[in-house]
Computed example of a mutant assay.
Amino acid sequence: MDASQRPGGGEPGFEPSRPLESFVETARRVAVEPAAFFRGVTNEDRVLPPMVFAIICGVVSAALGIAVEFLAPVDLGPFGGEAFGPPEAVSGQFGGLALAGIALAFVVLAPLFIVLGLYIGSFIYQILVRIVVGRDNAGYWATFKIYAYTSVVSLLSWLPVVGFLATLYGYYLVFVAVREAHDTTPARAAIVAAIPLLFFAASLASGFLAAGA
């Protein structure tokens, strides 16, 4: 069986008709077998499956992040406050109507913002690909798939420390994906992945400096 194909045959990548099984398998392949995955998914014409995959990753990550932020017990003792748990955290910060509004906004707006971010982020990456790789690249939609599928690392972004490491791993996935999907040299793929990484590192450094000031 071709390594670029899903188990059972058919197109590579996420298959919305089998959401749970396909999502788990696709996430595993992107994270563990990125070279084979992106080598095969480049030839797939469909754009909706990677978009849906990215939406699921983003929504799950955001939901878990909100749960940790507002529902996990927080101990403010060291800062002169009192410890409070899930009921106090929710009732103390939101009324019932406001909480319902937040839930509605999350359900409706989160996917819209994720899709918007996909198109904008893919466009920025495609500019880098066009400059570094040159005219002979697989085009915008190949980059769109790269940006969509590498969002798998966002599933861990809500975890302290682990989320940071997952973000760094995401840049490695971009390197592999650009190399395979755009059929370019490792050096050029590394440059495409390194430029956003440098901006990420610079933003972290500025944040630490601002916190220490």
Rank of each mutant, 00 (worst) to 15 (best):
M1E: 13
D2G: 02
A3L: 15
S4K: 15
G8H: 06
E11G: 00
P12I: 12
G13Y: 03
P16V: 05
P16D: 03
P16G: 02
S17W: 12
L20G: 06
F23E: 01
V24P: 01
T26N: 00
A27Q: 04
R28N: 04
R28V: 11
R29Y: 03
R29N: 04
V30F: 00
A31G: 05
V32E: 08
A35I: 01
A36T: 11
A36Q: 09
F38E: 00
R39F: 09
G40F: 04
G40E: 04
G40N: 08
T42G: 13
T42E: 15
T42K: 15
N43Y: 15
R46W: 11
L48Y: 12
L48D: 04
I55H: 07
I55E: 07
I56E: 08
V59D: 02
A62G: 08
A62N: 12
L64E: 01
V68L: 14
E69D: 15
F70G: 06
L71D: 01
V74Y: 10
L76I: 14
G77M: 03
P78S: 10
F79K: 10
E82K: 13
E82N: 11
F84Q: 15
F84E: 13
P87G: 09
V90F: 10
S91E: 14
G92M: 03
G92Y: 03
L99K: 02
G101W: 02
I102M: 09
F106E: 07
F113G: 00
V115E: 06
L116H: 07
G117F: 00
G117N: 04
G121Q: 08
F123V: 14
I124G: 10
L128V: 00
L128K: 00
L128T: 02
I131R: 04
I131P: 03
V133H: 08
G134V: 10
R135P: 11
T143F: 09
T143E: 03
K145P: 09
I146R: 01
I146L: 05
I146H: 02
I146F: 07
S151R: 14
V152A: 04
V153S: 01
V153F: 07
L155P: 01
F164W: 15
L165G: 09
A166H: 03
T167P: 11
Y171A: 10
A177Q: 05
V178G: 07
V178L: 07
E180C: 10
E180Q: 13
A181R: 09
H182L: 07
D183T: 15
T185H: 08
R188Y: 13
A190S: 11
I191Y: 00
I191K: 06
V192S: 02
A193W: 10
P196S: 00
L197V: 09
L198I: 14
F199G: 06
F199Q: 04
F200M: 04
F200W: 04
G207P: 07
G207N: 06
F208G: 09
L209P: 03
A210D: 05
A211S: 12
G212Q: 14
